[in-house]
């Protein structure tokens, strides 16, 4: 709206919006601040802000007492692995549903999404037993498969909505130009849908990174990612606020940073193409 704006109005809306934003962000900020305090300072009443004893000790301690690099690496492998595997399976399916739709395509999409509504707890025991039978308990492969299947409907849905925006004529043109099916997908569809594929990938890495049910149920030590690490950390050592905060910060910072860098694509991806 190209309308002259009174400086007073700008000031009011800016102050109000920043206040709201800071309130929403405050818990994360407070956790990060706490992670740099000594334990005594962290639990001091009244709470200490400027007068706190600042220290890096919590981080060094969490680092030395736990096997953070391994948890971190497991998180990376599991979230990236399950997302890439999911994309590999989902891209052809989304292509088919977007460009060769049949009468049943919409029902099929609905059904896929409905599998997401099944509560994980409800099928926890059978899946645990199945994974045990297959020797997949506490393996990265097992978690990659489980999280891939968990997020597959979302990946397919997101890709479907992106692919739908690509005009079918362009794919037909490539077919006239002599491209095979794979040529069509590799040279034309994928590059055109790259922004969409990227935001699908980001969102699913974040979902997989933050998944905290299957990662806890299906792992013990070897393959446990950061979500399991933090769950184990909070139980016995719950009273060490500063260390808990440091561990929490270490668990969420990688994805927080990734998310901040990609928030534009993310928001678009999250809406399932339903909001332009």
């Amino acid at each position: 709206m190209a309308r002259a704006l009174s400086p007073r109005r700008l000031l009011i809306t800016t102050v109000a919006a920043w206040t709201v934003a800071l309130i929403i962000f405050f818990p994360v900020l407070w956790m990060i601040l706490t992670s740099f305090k000594t334990e005594a300072s962290a639990v001091a009443m009244p709470p200490e802000f400027l007068s706190a004893d600042w220290t890096l000790e919590n981080y060094t301690e969490v680092w030395s007492r736990s096997d953070y690099p391994r948890f971190f690496w497991n998180s990376v492998v599991i979230s990236v692995g399950s997302t890439l595997l999911g994309l590999l399976i989902a891209i052809p399916a989304a292509w088919a549903m977007a460009f060769v739709p049949g009468k049943k395509t919409k029902d099929l999409l609905m059904w896929m999404l409905s599998t997401k509504m099944m509560p994980a707890v409800a099928v926890m025991i059978p899946l645990y037993l199945l994974f045990q039978q297959l020797g997949l308990i506490d393996t990265k492969i097992g978690l990659v498969i489980a999280l891939m299947l968990m997020n597959l409907p979302i990946i397919i849905w997101m890709l479907y909505t992106y692919f739908k925006e690509i005009p079918g004529e362009i794919l037909e043109a490539s077919r006239m130009d002599g491209a095979t099916l794979w040529g069509e997908i590799i040279y034309v569809l994928t590059p055109m849908a790259l922004p969409g594929i990227a935001s699908t990938m980001l969102l699913n890495i974040i979902l997989a990174w933050n998944e905290a049910f299957w990662t806890i149920v299906l792992t013990t030590t070897k393959a446990a990612p950061l979500s399991a690490f933090i769950a184990s950390f909070s139980a016995p050592q719950g009273l060490f606020y500063a260390k808990l905060s440091a561990a929490s910060a270490m668990a969420i910072l990688p994805i927080l940073i990734l998310g901040w860098f990609s928030q534009k694509q993310l928001v678009r991806g999250l809406t399932f193409g339903a909001v332009k």
Binding site: L22, I24, F25, N210, L226, L244, S248, A251, G259, W260
Partner: peptide, 21 residues
């Protein structure tokens, strides 16, 4: 960026921030 931050916080961490801090 500030507003979107809570979305990136994994549930156990979110819960423990609120519970403890």
């Amino acid at each position: 960026i500030l507003v979107i931050a809570p979305f990136f916080v994994m549930p156990p961490v979110a819960a423990s921030i609120w519970e403890n801090l």
